[in-house]
Design a protein around this nucleic acid. Sequence first.
DNA 1: CGCTAATTTGACCTGGATCAACTACGGTGG
DNA 2: CCACCGTAGTTGATCCAGGTCAAATTAGCG
Lengths: 247, 247
Amino acid sequence: MASNITHPLLPLIRKLESITTISDEERAAIESLPVRMQAFQPRQDVVSEGDKPSHCCLVLEGWLCRYKIISAGKRQIFSFHIAGDIPDLQSLHIPVMDHSLATLTAATVAFIPHAAMHDLTTRFPNIAAKFWRDTLVEAGIFREWILCMGRRSAFDHLAHLFCELYFKQEAVGLADSYRCPLPVTQLDLGDATGLSNVHVNRVIQEMRAKGMITLRKNTLVIEAWDELLQAAEFDASYLHLRKRIAL
Amino acid sequence: MASNITHPLLPLIRKLESITTISDEERAAIESLPVRMQAFQPRQDVVSEGDKPSHCCLVLEGWLCRYKIISAGKRQIFSFHIAGDIPDLQSLHIPVMDHSLATLTAATVAFIPHAAMHDLTTRFPNIAAKFWRDTLVEAGIFREWILCMGRRSAFDHLAHLFCELYFKQEAVGLADSYRCPLPVTQLDLGDATGLSNVHVNRVIQEMRAKGMITLRKNTLVIEAWDELLQAAEFDASYLHLRKRIAL
DNA sequence: CGCTAATTTGACCTGGATCAACTACGGTGG
DNA sequence: CCACCGTAGTTGATCCAGGTCAAATTAGCG
């Protein structure tokens, strides 16, 4: 297929290539997956708690987050998702959603029927293994979040989150030069870290005052890389990226 | 070896049966896995951060926990593991351990070579799918812990943890009648919830005073089931157990 | 230019941490 | 059988990180 425009599933291929090598045959199989693309407004649910999805969704553009709301309207965000992520792989093996998935920004999402995914993973155990690996890495990220929530100060926690989001984007070519998109509000950051938006604001100002970061127009710039890593005690190995950026 | 005593891998089979049906052939394949059994003292590392395991480990008896220690000796426990769990399935696909695994009690662990596990999952995709499913469920449990740490009070968090540990054990036949083993110290509970041992103690006393639980000799008795579930806002669906206990 | 959402600031409060004893208890050796 | 010891549990006093509430101020956007 000698098309010279990019294939819609390119983000997925790029993500897989960031951790492994895929054969031409595998690439072709992925590119021939039947997809239904859909555009979403910011802050819309893509899948909701209690749903029984019949499709997996793949982020093509924009940011999504997983979240859950408990009584008194308290929201907890569990993860942020960018192009190439398949945030509800779990629906392949667990019928009922135990949390919701929503856009943070305007986003484009590709829906792939479960049947096609099952077929793909059956025909290509290597791809199945990579998907499994992906959920294992994600579990590792959850553990790191637990650690941050349980044992780090608000300052260190946010520093850690910024490092993580930078690395995740850098690994798939969405960030470089210590600069990356961060299209989320301080309220979202609070819901992700378990802090109040007021406190998030104060911590960010402290980081700015220390010359560690700037955060404007949905762009994070890490001004003092070493200091930020050190405050966060950040060790990227839990992300299990194949390539590490040069420090 | 035509022994009529229970097979050492029975806990694993029981765990799989708690979520799915396994064929005789699959059962035979599991029972013929080459295992090396090892007994551990309490509070010993089974696998340590940075290790590159060549075996998966399966808990046969006793309690294990995953944890990580950061500077200043702060410890965070990520999960508790009981008979039938394979806490380091991830080493099958991710070479380097990003956390440690230790016993809480005296424990017996079966080590299964990665090669044998890869062989098993290749020959029986159904088993591979169940293992994958298991990591997905575990990720869901991590999310619930994140929610508890971020958005619940200490009281509700501990109540939630007690519910979870009861349900997990009940599902594999290790608990009933609102009574289950809980062979961990209050310090361990603190490291799991991100609380200090002092505060854990105070919360537990409050629960006792309210007649909700008793906790003595490493046994948890839930005296007021409904109240505990309600305080925790506990909804067991995130555990994705096949059978639910009758309330 | 006007509206709404997001950020920022200030004042005050509280859940849970920390520190420091002290008690209970299961082993262990004499 | 008892004295001793180390671990786990309990209690009290004090402190502070981060929450809450409310009111600006600013930024983005149609």
